[in-house]
Design a binder for these strands. Structure first.
Lengths: 341, 341
DNA sequence: CTGAAAGCGCTAACAC
DNA sequence: GTGTTAGCGCTTTCAG
């Protein structure tokens, strides 16, 4: 339990002032090579470590970024967070990760804590849409997957709309009668995907019963559920139609896709002959499910990288005026179970 | 972009000294009710927020806990981290989560960063075994799943040994010839599980070829892999034996269990008639795999809760002398695919 | 090139 | 009850 050394101790040992030590540490010039060496030696000898808290207090910036995420156990989010953290670390920032559990009060609570901790910036993933009202924080914010109803924001988001279009189009072209199954979650991602689905129906003149083709389950899904009664009845309801047409389900995410597959198998439907399923996210479940499930892959690496770049750019470049805007990250349709044996 | 107010501004507005404001904020007594009200009003009016950095600097503690974790995208770890974070938050601590990627250099790097950030304590999950040499940090540390080769440590760990025993015993009693399949990862968890397996063989007098029953794959596994050549040859090698005995595989974790199941199915083995598989962790994959896979469930909630309690106890109670020790958290054998249709 | 000193926002003696 | 003040560890003028 040795006490930590401060800059003073280093100054004393190397026989210079604290100012000089500080200059050496920060490489701010105005010291001789010889002095530098002495200071460095002293630092090494004492095993001195800079107190970032003091630095932050003095400089009025903490080199820390707050990351707000709905649920770290959801693979999509954990992948994004992990990559954000790597990017930020490489750029010299620490991150504080906060799980909001999609709860507004938790989100506000964390926002306060992060503010008190003097974070320099915020990455908010899939924010609660009402949160901006409480966002009295005066630091750069980058949203991932936010609904762009405020003009003055940086938003990085997957191209959910096009992804949904691709998925829906695929189903239609392969002559599956398209349905979308969604949840109660009203994130911008969800909204865009539904819009993409509906617009595609329209483009293909499937306008008869467009609204009936949207099935909303009474749940939010960040977890693996094996059963769902609503899905069971959906499957029952389409079963009689299978004699004259086959059904294509675009599931709002891979968890739901998995549940649809389970419900279908339980009722003896044949995949993909009678029923084809496409999910969203490229979560592991889509790959390991039997049968594996086609999906729209989000590019978590790019999502994270762009968000971090945007944050750090705002923090470092004082002159460059960045125009706030939405950046759309392309998604990719991944087809699976193509070779049923 | 309004500037943040400080305690001075509050003092001025409420016409008291900064000391009094501080007393009110921290509820340290020695102020009149009337003063309190005035101060609180001023705080509300200015929307004042305490600068935790300054508090930490002054008090020489940051109310922040560092969490080191091998990989946040691994469901077992993310579950533990999430629950740790919830516990800590409830106790008034922030957490900084760091992904070590099982790399010693990253671990050391983060340890330094955390130290500079003046964390008050550390929760280290499944540490790299050589890390303690670099652990010059002078704060309470609680390890989750650490190899107890240093006496003076707090360690919270699942009862891997007993878990492995239960799994192995189950296989033996159901007349499966037991094998264990493990990875290169040499964590204490892995070591204990292997020991539990071996000892159980010994207890049941399966001592002929005990060493041959341990298959080590040349990989570490935090991810979903669909194929593995070594596993394919393992399956091939046991296939001829199936006429006279059936095989039981205890997989070192659920990812491996899943891969074993895949390899077996690919080669036409019948599960569980010819081959029975038990995994470890109760990761989602064990549940959603087809067929679902029996597993030894770790109690992430208790793991996290105990670790956090131990950390906060050390930080708050000055008098109570805690004796360092290992705390074993019970695990549970979960049997699945019991009702093959 | 180097040092003295002010001060970031806060708490904790210490006085009154 | 309340105010004054020193100082946590650091950076940054400002002199020289």
């Amino acid at each position: 339990m040795t006490k930590k050394y401060s800059i003073k101790d280093v100054a004393k040992l190397s026989k210079v002032s604290v100012a000089t030590v500080s200059r050496v540490i920060n490489n701010n010039g105005r010291f001789s090579e010889e002095t530098r060496q002495r200071v460095l030696d002293a630092i090494a000898e004492l095993n001195y470590e800079q107190n970032k808290l003091a630095v932050s207090l003095r400089k009025n910036k903490s080199n820390t970024i707050g990351i707000l995420v709905p649920d770290i156990t959801n693979e999509f989010y954990s992948a994004v967070v992990k990559k954000c953290e790597q990017n930020l670390f490489a750029a010299g920032f620490s991150s504080i990760v906060c799980n909001t559990e999609r709860s507004l009060s938790r989100e506000q609570n964390y926002l306060k804590v992060l503010s008190e901790h003097m974070v320099d910036g915020l990455i908010i993933i899939s924010a609660n849409d009402h949160a901006e009202e409480s966002l009295s924080i005066r630091v750069p914010v980058v949203y991932i997957d936010r609904n762009p109803h405020l003009k003055d924001e940086f938003i990085i988001t997957s191209d959910h709309y096009t992804g949904a279009q691709k998925a829906t189009e695929f189903l239609i072209k392969r002559h599956y009668s398209p349905f979308i199954i969604t949840t109660k979650t009203n994130s911008s991602a969800t909204v865009e995907r539904i819009k993409g689905f509906k617009d595609t129906l329209f483009n293909y003149n499937i306008i008869d019963s467009a609204q009936e083709r949207v099935i909303q389950l009474n749940m939010t899904s960040d977890q693996y559920l094996l059963e769902n009664k609503e899905l069971d009845s959906f499957i029952s309801s389409i079963k009689p139609q299978l004699t004259e047409r086959r059904i294509g389900v675009f599931a709002i995410n891979d968890y739901i896709a998995f549940m649809v597959a389970r419900a279908a198998i339980k009722q003896g439907l044949s995949i993909p002959d009678e029923l084809s399923i496409i999910g969203f996210d490229d979560a592991p479940v889509s790959l390991i499910s039997t049968p594996s499930i086609s999906t729209v892959q989000q590019d978590t690496g790019t999502l994270a990288q762009r968000a971090c770049r945007l944050i750090t750019k705002q923090l470092t470049s004082t002159n460059t005026k960045l125009t706030k805007r939405i950046e759309l990250i392309p998604v990719k349709l991944i087809l699976r179970s193509r070779t049923p044996k």
